[in-house]
Computed example of a mutant assay.
Amino acid sequence: MALKKPKYKDLIFLVIVALFFIPQTRKPIQIFVNKGLALISPSTINSEKQKAIPSYNLILKDENGTIFNFETTKGKIVLVNFWATWCPPCIAEMTSMQKLYKDYKDKVTFVFVSDESFNVVNPFLEKNNYTFKVYQPVTNYNNIFKVSSIPKTFLINQKGNVIIEKTGAANWNSNSVRNTINSLLATKNKI
Rank of each mutant, 00 (worst) to 15 (best):
L100H: 14
T85H: 03
N129P: 01
E93P: 07
I77K: 01
D115C: 01
T139V: 11
K127F: 02
T131V: 06
E93M: 09
V108C: 10
T139E: 10
F118G: 14
D115V: 03
N122I: 14
W83F: 11
E116D: 10
V120D: 15
Y104V: 09
E93T: 04
Y135A: 05
V108Y: 08
V113E: 05
M94H: 12
K105M: 11
F132L: 04
S117P: 04
Y135C: 05
N128Q: 09
T109V: 15
W83I: 00
N122G: 02
Y135L: 04
A92L: 08
K76S: 08
Q98H: 10
K105F: 09
M97P: 10
W83R: 01
F124Q: 07
N81H: 09
M97L: 15
N81E: 07
L79G: 00
T139R: 10
K76C: 00
C87T: 08
V121C: 05
N128P: 05
P137M: 12
M97W: 00
L79C: 00
F82K: 02
W86T: 11
D103H: 13
S96I: 09
Y130N: 05
F118Y: 15
D106S: 15
C90Y: 00
D106F: 11
A92M: 09
V78M: 01
Y130F: 15
N119M: 06
F110N: 06
K105T: 12
D115P: 08
N142T: 14
D115M: 03
K105I: 11
S96R: 06
E93L: 06
P123R: 03
K76I: 01
Y130D: 02
Y135H: 09
N122D: 14
V78Q: 03
Y130V: 08
P88M: 02
M97N: 14
C87V: 03
F124C: 02
F112V: 01
S114F: 05
V113C: 05
K99N: 15
K133D: 05
F110P: 11
C90Q: 00
T131F: 02
Y101K: 13
N140C: 07
K127I: 02
D106T: 15
Y101A: 13
N140A: 13
F118K: 12
Y101H: 15
T85P: 11
F82P: 06
